[in-house]
Amino acid sequence: MNRRKFTDWLLRLASIPVAASILYPIIRYFQPPEVAEGTATTVEAATVDELAVDEYKIFRFGTRPGILIRISEDEYRAFAATCTHLDCIVQYRDDKRMIWCACHNGLFDLSGRNVSGPPPRPLEEYQINVVGETVYVSRT
């Protein structure tokens, strides 16, 4: 290899870091930054007079939806509302007394267990604390 070839080769090689220093920021830019996961482990999901027996609501738990169901006068249940099958949001069916996902007919019982349809896993269950008039939901 003579000197000219060597310089030529060196210049060509230098184009790699140049290209990399332009492309790396661009590629990284495309990746959306992670949304800060709600750090709160407890949220106010509802007030006591908001739900009658056999009624439910979807509440915000950080960035994710949760489902709160009043199953009797003094008993509530709360779960992550994202179906474990394909991420649809579930709802409560008072006719079946079950949690139902409308997308692919998945059913969960009132402990969150997947009992029929395609969902592969149970829903994550949250803890309930009723303090005065407020229903608090917390993640363990």
């Binding site: 920021p25 661009i26 990284r28 830019y29 990746q31 959306p32 930054p33």
Partner: peptide
């Protein structure tokens, strides 16, 4: 402030 290299672009 959030996007990677967003300030640069």
């Amino acid at each position: 402030n959030e996007v990677y290299f967003g300030w640069l672009i």
